[in-house]
Amino acid sequence: MSSRPRHPARTILLGVLSAFGPLSMDMYLPALPEVASQLHTTSAAGQLTITSCIFGLAAGQIIVGPLSDRWGRKLPLLAGVALFTLTSFLIPFTTSIWPLIILRLFQGIGGSAGQVLSRAVARDLFSGPQLGRFLGILMSINGIFPIIAPLLGGAVLNFTDWRGVFVILGVTGLVLFLWTLFGLPETLPNEKRTTTGFAAFTQMSGLLKDRPFMGYMLSQGFVYGALYVYISGSAFAFETVFHFSPQLFSIIYAVNGAGMIVATQLAARNLTDRNGDRILRGSILAAALASTLLLFAIHQWPSGILLAAGLVIIISLVGAVNTTATTLALGNEARHAGAASALLGLGMNAIGGLMSPVVGLFGTHSSLPMVMLIMLCEWVAFILLIGLTHQKSQ
């Protein structure tokens, strides 16, 4: 089957559905200080609205993915998008922090359906290198949103308050619900579905015993841990430590996002049935070595320009890792693509969510802790990948 999409509108839809993470998180970030101020709470409590959404994005996938192997992709996807839309429209009516935290949790659960099922639908349609190239297209569409979402959120705050951000998210969810309802066919036929919902969860437990699959899942998860450390710590490193302007930081952030898109496409176009493991190992090793050299360089010659140059290499390689690891992990799971995609999403969001607040524990007076944590995540990812996929390569 050709990897070139025969229905570009559906490809764009799947790409946007896969971007519920950055849509839910990055667009909201500029409004976070205002939320804490207007709801008369602490910045730490305001941060919990981010944490609860990350937890929802992670936990929702292990529910939605296996159920989609039993009931098909479209019904769970519509239910998830509907939940995201409903909670987005309810959030502007909150007047205290805890209802907001709870609604953000359910917003994340709803958004998780788009993340997990966009990958499952891709696996229903393609396999092998064709799957890798199609995932590359989806991830390139996805990669646009971390660039534009914070800018859009900041623009919204120029003419309304933080509640307006969620109104826009609600409208976006409604458009995606209608687009999915009328524009996306069911991709998992009845004869390929599991017989019961419990069978799908049993398959998930079986995947946890599959060493190569776990190697791909955990290595991808820790690379995302490095990405989340960068997202959490980079603004403080550039603006507080090296005194870059917010505008210059936004440019650096956008360049790294563009780098991820380029690396995604390069990996997807060069992926074959035989070289996937080599590309994945090379990408993670390159990021691990680059982060090690960057840590040494920043320690010896503290420089914001040097930090930016090193990070653009490390963060761009996330795109190559994401495309290749997802393709390899889903490659043998045609019948249980929902369960496999769910575990991949859980690894990315759970490990990333756990690493995200760690960088803040070291304070904002040096960029070294951020770079050190990125290096640690990359080397752990490489060691786990080699250790768990070693037998496969023999």
Score class of each variant (00 low, 15 high):
I261T: 11
I261E: 02
V262W: 06
V262R: 03
V262P: 04
V262G: 06
A263L: 04
T264C: 14
T264L: 08
T264E: 09
Q265L: 07
Q265N: 07
Q265C: 12
L266T: 05
L266M: 03
L266K: 09
A267Q: 00
A267R: 02
A268M: 12
A268S: 02
A268Q: 00
R269F: 07
R269L: 00
N270W: 15
N270V: 03
N270S: 15
N270Q: 11
L271N: 12
L271M: 15
T272F: 03
T272Q: 15
R274S: 10
R274N: 15
R274D: 15
R274F: 13
R274L: 14
N275E: 10
N275S: 05
N275P: 05
G276Y: 02
G276C: 10
D277F: 05
R278V: 08
R278K: 11
I279L: 11
I279Y: 10
L280H: 05
L280N: 04
L280W: 00
L280C: 09
L280R: 12
R281S: 02
R281K: 15
R281Y: 12
G282A: 11
G282C: 07
G282I: 03
G282M: 07
G282P: 00
S283Y: 10
S283Q: 02
S283H: 04
I284C: 05
I284G: 00
L285R: 10
L285N: 09
L285M: 04
A286M: 04
A286Q: 01
A286R: 13
A286N: 00
A286P: 05
A287M: 04
A287Y: 01
A287S: 08
A288S: 00
A288V: 11
A288P: 07
L289K: 03
L289Q: 04
L289Y: 01
L289D: 02
L289E: 00
A290F: 04
S291R: 09
S291Y: 11
S291K: 08
T292M: 08
T292G: 09
T292Q: 10
T292I: 02
T292E: 10
T292A: 07
L293F: 04
L293N: 12
L293P: 11
L294H: 01
L294I: 08
L294A: 01
L294G: 01
L295Q: 03
F296W: 09
F296T: 11
A297K: 02
A297G: 04
I298Y: 03
I298T: 07
I298V: 02
Q300N: 14
W301T: 13
W301V: 14
W301A: 12
W301R: 13
P302Q: 13
P302T: 14
S303L: 13
G304I: 06
G304D: 05
G304A: 14
I305Q: 14
L306P: 00
L306S: 05
L307S: 01
L307D: 05
L307G: 01
L307C: 07
L307M: 07
A308V: 00
A308G: 14
A308K: 11
A308N: 01
A309S: 15
L311D: 08
L311I: 15
V312T: 11
V312C: 08
V312M: 06
I313P: 01
I313R: 03
I313T: 07
I314T: 02
I315H: 14
I315E: 11
I315K: 13
I315V: 14
S316Q: 14
S316R: 04
L317Q: 08
V318E: 08
V318A: 08
V318M: 09
V318H: 08
G319P: 15
G319M: 12
A320G: 08
V321S: 03
V321K: 06
N322S: 09
